[in-house]
Nucleic acid binder design. Structure first.
Length: 110
DNA sequence: AACATGACTTTCT
DNA sequence: TAGAAAGCCATGT
């Protein structure tokens, strides 16, 4: 079975991602830092990669530094972008999100 | 224990 | 501004 079972760190990451409101996005480093795992951005990515299918977790709101989508196998990236656009997130011609406007602030969680 | 892989980040060219 | 290389952390073989 898998790595992340009941580790509080992992739960914190999942909770942080789940706290990201629609129309806003956060970077891997941002989430990791909030979860108390600063510098472990890759761990966040790994967690999301292991996410089960039925997870309601807004994984699509997690982007790279600069607001770009991490390329990976499958319809992941395309679906991620589609979902974000549906939430009102604007993508630049470079395929990146304008963090100046869409960046999520942990203090602004309703 | 060592090597290889990956939803990352930073720096250099 | 875009592309390639190196570095860092955790997992799996």
């Amino acid at each position: 079975m898998q790595p992340t079972h009941n580790d509080p760190r992992i739960q914190r990451i999942l909770a942080t991602v789940d706290c990201i409101p629609p129309g806003r996005v956060a970077t891997y480093g941002q989430v990791a830092s909030e979860a108390g795992l600063a510098g472990r951005a890759r761990l966040v990515g790994r967690i999301l990669a292991e996410l089960p299918k039925g997870s309601h977790l807004p994984w699509h709101r997690v982007l790279q530094t600069g607001g770009g989508i991490s390329p990976r196998s499958g319809p992941g990236p395309a679906e991620q972008r589609a979902r974000l656009e549906k939430e009102g997130v604007v993508f630049t011609l470079s395929g990146r999100v304008d963090l100046k406007s869409a960046a999520w602030k942990p203090d602004e969680t309703p």
